[in-house]
Nucleic acid binder design. Sequence first.
DNA 1: ATTATCTATAGATCTATAGATAATGC
DNA 2: ATTATCTATAGATCTATAGATAATGC
Lengths: 226, 226
Amino acid sequence: MAAVPASSTRFDRRRAQTRSALIKAAQDLLAEGRTGVPIQEVTERADVGIGTFYNHFDSKDQLFDAAVVDALEQLADLLDSLDSSLTDPAAHFARSFRLTGRLHRLAPQLSRVLLARGHELSTAPQGIGPRARRDILAAQAAGQFEARDLDRAMVLVTGSMIELGRVLHDRPELDGDAMTDEVTSDVLVALGMTRADADRICSTELPRLDDLTTDLLDDPARTATP
Amino acid sequence: MAAVPASSTRFDRRRAQTRSALIKAAQDLLAEGRTGVPIQEVTERADVGIGTFYNHFDSKDQLFDAAVVDALEQLADLLDSLDSSLTDPAAHFARSFRLTGRLHRLAPQLSRVLLARGHELSTAPQGIGPRARRDILAAQAAGQFEARDLDRAMVLVTGSMIELGRVLHDRPELDGDAMTDEVTSDVLVALGMTRADADRICSTELPRLDDLTTDLLDDPARTATP
DNA sequence: ATTATCTATAGATCTATAGATAATGC
DNA sequence: ATTATCTATAGATCTATAGATAATGC
């Protein structure tokens, strides 16, 4: 979550915590696809009074928008926290894609919030869209991907990631890691790599995500900040 | 639209027409993303009394579901109506994909209804999903596509088509035909064709869609059946 | 005689605010 | 003294139905 900032006063922290509880409640509801619920149900989940809602947001839509932006930031933060020593742009792109794919199963609730507004995954400035574009351009410049229109490349990249998430949620019997790596390979081939190179890049080992996802959206204790 | 069937009695036809007007109104609203409107707004658009709604549907959700199914059938009917003499499975797949891509601009409202529930495009039995699966399997059997898991192939195919539609709506300045053909080529390459073959297949001429879309969702006169 | 539709509305639900209370800053 | 939060609720909105009317079938 967009951590409650260590703002100046205790007042600010208290206020930020209330806002955070509202956003978390909205994310729960988004993940369940229940965006039509009355505001009172949101505030009850957040355990705040109804009136408090209007101290922070003007409307339900505004709250849900904020909830999606927060989720996008969580994902971006996660990927940044892993930003290790990889200087190879194609390898960096592939790793981000494979990790994001794994997230659908490791942090299903965060994933569902993101999928609720799938397209924003690539268009929002807070999202991983800018990161993906940067990596693709770098890989094109390095000659690893064929030079081509960025918008065109993003259609395949974004579309595949969103649909991958939907399928992994829909069909729990599928092997998520294998499917993710296969789809990543397909995307790399579409971007201009040979199948051999793509498969090789997709079978490298990944940093473990398990430890990092503990404080993500799915942890029930997350809002219970002491 | 699921044409008002030439059912036995005039009674049935009248009833079917009312139902059809409700579905059309729901599709208008779906295309605008306004699924939260009161039932009365739907019935006003359909120009029927409020009470009539409950003669046909139990809830708003049920109506919107029916509206999506109807749109899926429209698209399937359209593609079927073109089912000419193409015996080459890869070519048939590519043509369907390119035509569906063009539909986003030629029948924007139908497209928006489909995109409102994008994932169902591939999972619904009425949709073009079954058709796509059939074509892909045939092309794999014919050695045109690499043999591989169908679910894996569908992630790329479905995801790219949905994201393509969103991008074409979002960014009217893009050349829709060119973008569609390029994305189709990328998908074919990911499915195992060479880029040369894929580009060739994507530059063949298409049947004109303009004439066929006249009686689709976008025609304002559509519900005004005499 | 039967069935679809229409109008009007009771009752349920929801939004947004007013006014009171609690927590913090200075 | 200031600001966030809470409780209670007025007024708006929405759903779903009852009862009347219109269209068709036989």
